[in-house]
Design a protein around this nucleic acid. Structure first.
Length: 483
RNA sequence: GGCCCCUUCGUCUAAUCGGUGAGGACACCAGCCUUUCAAGCUGGCAGCAGGGGUUCAAAUCCCCUAGGGGUCACCA
């Protein structure tokens, strides 16, 4: 009976930019897999690229992950702080003759690459430095060359990747070459650091995007050379842009940060991303916790998914309607501030008002970013009347009079809530022997400047008696002046 | 180009060992509801990339073609 190892997975982004939805989904799948199996979700920052790695990006990565609710159990480990581990393992490889110093300069390699390309041939490192003598090495050193370290890769045979999602994928070793595991600046390359760390961190399953599938035989070979027992691999399908190409900046919002600033809720993004490539079975609307209960790798498909924000937006609208009002107002506040509708800090009654306002419009809106505009007339008294509405609704001869009569009725009210204002309108329409719509439509236009929106009496209840009466009167005057 | 992966409605996907009227969600269309706009409810439209096999039976297995994607760095 085999020993069941505790599942340990990692998300290992490189801090060279914002977290895009491809990476975020990889993180999500790792998180879900760990949770579903009672395992550990580890965060590792692969920052061995000195040129492109930036601490700010790393910090932003952590923020984005937290925002999504993908809390990690261990880490973050920074590869830049673990160089001694890689050096030690590289030295071992060198000593055992499984790797060697290569003094070819980037320029020389580049030349050979060019020549191969011109000849229409595939370039593979020719093994120039495979068997250098001590003297040759000393000579190169004397020239001031600093070597890279290459892994000795077998020239024949196959390496097979037994992938959980793709099945057995076979690569011929002669299509690989002695690749670089340590750069001339002493830093490890991805295909080395990753192998060493996955082993040292006890990673049992590597779940990552399919773009890494062709790297896997190299990593397997490296692991073998180091005497490691390699983890299981699961290469999840890519997420493509609507034009079927790889996601990039020009495709609009692709980073978690952007979705956040466009007013998407993390619950919606997470739910939507999970559905890209993974199928839960019956119910699609699921919280992180619910997903964690039923997640399994065998329900991940093989084909790349094209992401389309329409469904995400629908889903966001759904979560907006379900959201707890206090939470919603808190997360929506920055959007109100940006629109100049609110300025902090808010006192208790301002928060209450914001909550009520959002409550009345939330089901008409799909993102937080649309909220301020939908709520504008609750905060500003000066607005224009929608021209089409004016033409259709304000042009009936008796409209001004109707608005004044309505205002007079409302003025008598002691309580000013949904029920009382509604009763007042129905009484008036009965007395006048007209349909309530004749009263309601011009009133909405008077109160909001718009022809659509929440139920009239809900608007009145939020606005309160004073503002309601003022706006009704103002509209009546406007109509008279225009005629 | 070499190597590798993939191919079910417009999009995301389901269909455990071959037997289904090929199911769901979003979008779209229609109707209902209604105080407008939404929301909600009901119904509708729409797909197995193409061609060969194997089989009583193929979306499902095999082969070929086409198309898409990934990768071929001292980036990860």
């Amino acid at each position: 009976m085999g020993v069941l190892l505790m599942v340990r997975v990692r998300f290992a982004p490189s801090p060279t930019g914002e977290l895009h939805i491809g990476g975020a989904r990889t993180a999500l799948f790792n998180y879900l897999f760990a949770r579903a199996n009672g395992g550990v979700f580890i965060l590792r920052i692969d920052d061995t690229d000195q040129e492109r790695s930036r601490p700010e990006y790393a910090a932003a990565l952590l923020e984005a992950l937290k925002w999504l609710g993908l809390e990690w159990d261990e880490g973050p480990y920074y590869q830049s702080e673990r160089l001694s581990e890689y050096n030690r393992e590289a030295a071992r490889l060198l000593e055992e003759g499984k790797a060697y110093h290569c003094y070819c300069s980037p320029e020389e390699i580049q030349e050979q690459r060019e020549a191969a390309r011109k000849a229409g041939k595939l370039f593979r490192y020719p093994g120039t430095c495979r068997d250098l003598s001590k003297d040759e090495m000393r000579a190169y050193e004397a020239e001031g060359r600093s070597p890279v370290i290459r892994l000795r890769v077998p020239e024949s045979g196959n390496t097979v990747v037994d992938d959980i999602i793709r099945g057995r994928v076979t690569f011929a070793n002669d299509t690989l070459d002695d690749y670089i595991i340590v750069k001339s600046n002493g830093l490890p390359t991805y295909n080395f650091a990753s192998v060493v760390d996955d082993h040292l961190l006890g990673i049992t399953h590597v779940i990552r995007a399919e773009e890494h599938l062709s790297n896997t035989p190299r990593q397997l070979l490296c692991a073998t050379a180091l005497g490691y027992r390699p983890p299981r691999y699961a290469h999840v399908p890519m997420i493509l842009a609507p034009d079927r190409s790889k996601l990039s900046k020009r495709h609009g919002a692709t980073s978690v940060e952007e979705f956040c600033s466009q007013g998407y809720l993390p619950e919606a993004l997470v739910n939507y991303m999970a559905l890209l490539g993974w199928s839960p079975g019956e119910e699609e609307i699921l919280t992180l916790e619910e997903m964690a209960k039923i997640f399994s790798l065998d329900r991940i498909g093989k084909n790349a998914a094209i992401y389309d924000t329409v469904k995400l937006t629908w889903m966001n609208g759904h979560y907006l309607m379900q959201a707890d009002p206090a939470y919603l107002s808190k997360t929506a506040y920055p959007f109100f501030e940006a629109e100049g509708l609110l300025k902090g800090p808010l006192n208790e009654s301002q928060w209450d008002y914001l909550r009520t306002v959002i409550e009345t419009v939330r089901e008409r809106v799909k993102t937080l970013a649309e909220l301020p505009e939908a709520c504008r007339y609750f905060y500003e008294d000066d607005f224009d009347y929608d021209p089409k509405g004016v033409q259709k609704i304000f042009t009936k001869d008796d409209t001004a009079l109707l608005l004044r009569q309505a205002a007079a009725r409302l003025a008598q009210l002691d309580r000013f809530d949904y029920a009382s204002t509604e009763r007042a309108y129905h009484d008036l329409s009965a007395a006048l022997e007209i349909s309530a719509v004749k009263l309601i439509q011009p009133s909405r236009l008077a109160l909001t400047g718009r022809t659509g929106g929440p139920e009239l009496f809900a608007i009145m209840a939020v606005l309160g008696k004073e503002k309601t009466l003022q706006r009704l009167e103002k509209a009546a005057a406007y109509i008279e002046a225009a005629l």
